[in-house]
Amino acid sequence: MNNTEIPNNKPLLSVKNLKKHFVTKKNFFGHPKEYAYALNGISFDINKGETMGLVGESGCGKTTAGRTIMGIYKPTAGEVYLHGEKLDLSKGPEKRIQMIFQDPYACLNPRMTVGEIIGEPLEINNVYDDNKAKQQRVYELLELVGLSREQANRFPHEFSGGQRQRIGIARALAVNPDIIICDEPISALDVSIQAQVVNLMRRLQKELGLTYLFIAHDLAMVKYISDRVAVMYMGAIMELAAAEELYANPLHPYTKSLLAAIPVPDPDVRQDVSIIKGEIGTGDMTGCPFAPRCNKASDKCFKEMPAIKNVEGHQIACHLI
């Protein structure tokens, strides 16, 4: 890969003020009338070899973020830089960014064999001229994710959920991507299988020096796998910090209440009963998106969107801190 020429201090992936608004209603002339504000300008960097966790509740824009970075969605505004070079996202998905999907049942074509599924990205990108080399690479990938080469001729329905997710991982690895976006890769799996897949992902990261953007709503798993974690709420990043630090010392009121809400598998841990009130809103507001649910919100919070600032090593968007 060409990343050897890049100086070490430069981030591998850099997202700058990325916005994505979906048109939800059009007027008589076909002009957009109403928008869903899925992403309201998010910025972050990911360094090589690190795992960045992106957490938030459903509808907060974390999946949209992943898909926009990859070029599946055309961004409304903002830029994405890979190795310091600006990506032209209007041309469609970028080969150097690959994705692992949430639903291992829906993301594999039931009419293709596993070998064909894993080989497809190689074919589309014309990586190999000769079929034998391609086949060899498919076998290699299968073994890399803990499956056997004999399984290449089988169909997806013959595999369990955990095995299918391994196939999804092999497919994402096929073209040697620089970064893999993992969109809730384990939330459809059973608890005992989740640990198997997460361990595989960590092993691959160590062996191949992979970089992950790990999108999930399971905060415990995100903490376990990530080096840094960004907490999103209604299309904006509320807080971003090193994983251990964020969980031990959350600063943003939303992060605090989110962490307090996670049920801990220990009946003696009596959790803070001050449960966060209300539900997620619509997103077309001027102030801090969390203000209506925040018990410390002041007038300023409703009027003005807080800017990201650095506090104790956290990047945080809150007027009160």
């Binding site: 996670i262 449960i275 966060i276």
Partner: peptide, 8 residues
Amino acid sequence: LDVTIQAQ
């Protein structure tokens, strides 16, 4: 449901 709603 989301964790905050789950708690509720």
